[in-house]
Simulated scan of single mutants.
Amino acid sequence: MLRLEEVEVAYGRVAALRGISLEVREGELVSLIGANGAGKSTTLKTVSGLLKPAAGRVTWDGQPIAGLSPREILRRGIAHCPEGRRVFPHLSVRENLMMGALLRRDAAGIAQDLDAMYARFPRLQERAGQAAGTLSGGEQQMLAIARALMSRPRLVMFDEPSLGLAPALVQQVFEIVQEVRRQGLMVLMVEQNALAALGLCDRAYLLETGRVVRAGSGPALMASADVREAYLGGRAFAA
């Protein structure tokens, strides 16, 4: 469904992606792992239209999308849940959720999905009229996820969903990611917790300095000695 082929992206003269190729297939959860600065977040921003590639192809459902606006890419079914939550702090929780449905015109469906988000995240319903900026970090992450789902996407991209959260909340966020995938959506996830990312995914790509240096199933990458040494503290894990 989603395919990147030899994509190059630069910030000025600094190369961020150096010919990256990857794909997300129907029904898959794919993780991107790697050190800070490897190009993981840049990859997601390129897919969502926030960055334009200098070379290469990005296709979605067989159609080129590189160069399209973020609005048009969202309209085509790709939602981006960004690093740092990026909620609208002065808008209420409900208004933030409605922003996720901004491009939709089906009022009845929007109302139905809003009720579904409140059922899935009861804390958001409790704080529906509260300014989003006053929520805790965990609550803001729930809001960011729910806002992305309000667009009724086919692919959800999560950028560091566990960043800065307490351990109990981290587990809850990963359970939500799994639930999203079980509902039939495709997921592309950037996550610094490499062990959790590899344990959740169907396939993973290891990025270093803007290049894919290894790809395979989660268990295969966990079993790789160099991946264990660099990203899993040298420990071996059972598949």
Score class of each variant (00 low, 15 high):
Val227Arg: 03
Arg76Ala: 07
Ser162Phe: 09
Asn193Lys: 12
Met157Asp: 09
Gly62Val: 04
Gly56Leu: 09
Thr42Arg: 00
Lys45Cys: 07
Arg86Thr: 08
Pro64Ala: 08
Leu206Thr: 03
Glu6Met: 10
Pro53Gln: 08
Pro89Phe: 04
Pro82Leu: 01
Val47Cys: 00
Ala10Glu: 02
Arg71Phe: 08
Leu51Pro: 04
Leu188Glu: 06
Leu198Gly: 10
Gly56Arg: 10
Ala236His: 12
Val47Pro: 05
Met142Glu: 13
Gly34Ala: 04
Ala116Ser: 13
Thr43Pro: 02
Val47Ser: 01
Gly37Asn: 03
Ala107Trp: 03
Leu22Thr: 09
Ile65Arg: 07
Ile20Val: 15
Leu51Asn: 04
Gln172Arg: 11
Ala119Lys: 01
Ala15Cys: 00
Leu17Val: 05
Pro64Val: 05
Arg104Asn: 04
Met157Asn: 07
Pro82Met: 03
Glu191Gly: 11
Glu83Arg: 01
Cys81Met: 11
Ala197Asp: 05
Leu188Thr: 07
Phe158Leu: 14
Leu4Asp: 08
Asp106Phe: 01
Gln63His: 12
Met99Asp: 01
Glu229Phe: 05
Leu221Tyr: 05
Ala16Trp: 01
Ala220Glu: 15
Ala119Val: 00
Gly138Lys: 01
Gly67Ser: 05
Tyr118Ala: 06
Gly19Glu: 06
Glu126Pro: 08
Phe237Tyr: 15
Glu95Thr: 10
Arg71Tyr: 13
Phe158Tyr: 11
Met142His: 11
Thr46Ala: 15
Arg181Val: 06
Leu91Trp: 10
Met157Ile: 09
Phe158Asp: 06
Val212Asn: 12
Ala108Arg: 15
Gln130His: 14
Met98Asn: 11
Gly199Ile: 02
Thr46Glu: 05
Leu74His: 12
Arg104Ser: 08
Glu72Ala: 14
Val213Lys: 13
Leu195His: 15
Ile65Pro: 09
Val9Thr: 00
Leu200Phe: 09
Leu195Gly: 12
Ile145His: 10
Arg18Asp: 09
Gly233Tyr: 13
Ala238Pro: 07
Glu6Thr: 13
Tyr231Ile: 11
Val93Asp: 04
Ala111Gln: 14
Ala225Gln: 14
Gly109His: 00
Ile33Asn: 08
Glu139Thr: 11
Pro122Val: 04
Thr43His: 02
Arg147Cys: 12
